[in-house]
Design a protein around this nucleic acid. Structure first.
Lengths: 208, 208
DNA sequence: AAAAGCGGAATGACGTGTCATTCTTTTGAA
DNA sequence: TTCAAAAGAATGACACGTCATTCCGCTTTT
């Protein structure tokens, strides 16, 4: 171990920073931003709350970082699908199904991330959620454009708005799920009904 | 004017109660629940903040009442469509279009109501929004069941989930609109794209 | 021994809710 | 009708608790 003293210190500091972020995420998600005191975060870790200020500017500072982490975490559920990969409706349908499935898996493994995104974000930074939704719908637009170019999606679609609506549809599922615990069977209903609505609409089969 | 003194007093008290509710709605919607002090509400009306406590228990008390009012206000945009009226897809499509249009009109005339429903509600009473969304989707279910029975909507539809998803879709539009001011032209795009997505889905015309 | 890290008491700003006091309306006796 | 007393309404100073942030003495690391 050729680590210098300074390097070791920096590593320890970084580790503790992460610990504090984790504790804050947990408590913000469960008690809520406004109801959480710095002392609560410190107590969770058994450290003095003065120590907190060695690692973060203030409460707003850590809250923004916690929220950003959560948003990135959720975004990662989308990132491993290539928006240009699909060549027909069935492929795109399968892709969408995988994305929604991954979303619900994320919800199960990191429920706090969704609580932060949907609930606490308004207390922390209203614009953060907006910006993230903007990013999600921009990404969705790429998928839609791909399908329109290749001819398997509706040619007259208003891509921008449709993308926004689809993001709203998907996140409505996760939003509801954070309120009460959601068994895997209910996910499946959401995924099936959501995908059916998205691809076929509500109309009976013989349309137009 | 045969009003007794007691009646006059009661009327005046009720009027002031309304004034305070209005002021609170305005300020909660603009500053946010947690950032609003009783003093702010009183200042808005130019009354002493002690007076506030003659009319409401505390901040939570008035906030719940303000939120309930807002939810009822928004619900009224739906109430004048009969869920059993439509007999074919086109009629139901027209009904849906009217509902969405009325929603955006409500948004224009009472923007604070939506700010309260979408944003402040989580700070005031998490369960209130849930309950209201529950009510909206239960109402939507009635429309869907009507269409399935009459054969013009998809027979295999998961009515419960689809209704929830549709509510999410519609409110995503209003949610976005409260952030930035939304010109009427953008409403129309939302209504058109939303209705198209709902009835036809994203797929190109000749499906399955 | 010096430097860095830590803890928790102290500080001060702020918001809530109370209450003694003042102002307004109503009452009813003259 | 008049007006003084009673009842009701409004006010804002203040007590109180809470909490983010700071400060300084103590401990651990180098």
């Amino acid at each position: 171990m050729t680590a210098t003293a300074a390097e070791r210190r920096a590593a320890r500091a970084e580790a503790r920073r992460e610990e504090i972020l984790d504790a804050a995420q947990k408590i913000f998600a469960s008690k809520g931003y406004n109801e959480t005191g710095i002392a609560d975060i410190a107590a969770e870790l058994g450290i003095g709350h003065g120590t907190f200020y060695r690692y973060f500017e203030n409460k707003q500072d850590i809250a923004v970082q916690v929220l950003d982490r959560a948003i990135l975490d959720i975004a990662s559920a989308l990132s491993d699908e290539d928006p240009h990969a699909s060549n027909d409706v069935d492929e795109y349908r399968a892709q969408t199904t995988r994305i929604m499935l991954r979303m619900f898996e994320k919800l199960e493994s990191h429920p706090e991330a969704f609580a932060l995104l949907h609930v606490q974000s308004v207390a922390i930074d209203t614009t953060a959620t907006q910006r993230s939704f903007e990013a999600y719908s921009a990404y969705t637009e790429v998928f839609l454009r791909n399908g329109i170019e290749k001819g398997f999606l509706r040619q007259d679609m208003d891509v921008e708005i449709t993308a926004q609506a689809l993001v709203g549809l998907i996140f409505e599922g996760t939003r509801r799920a954070i309120a009460e615990d959601t068994p895997r069977e209910l996910w499946m209903r959401w995924i099936n009904a959501g995908v059916a609505l998205m691809f076929e609409g509500v109309s009976a089969n013989q349309n137009g």
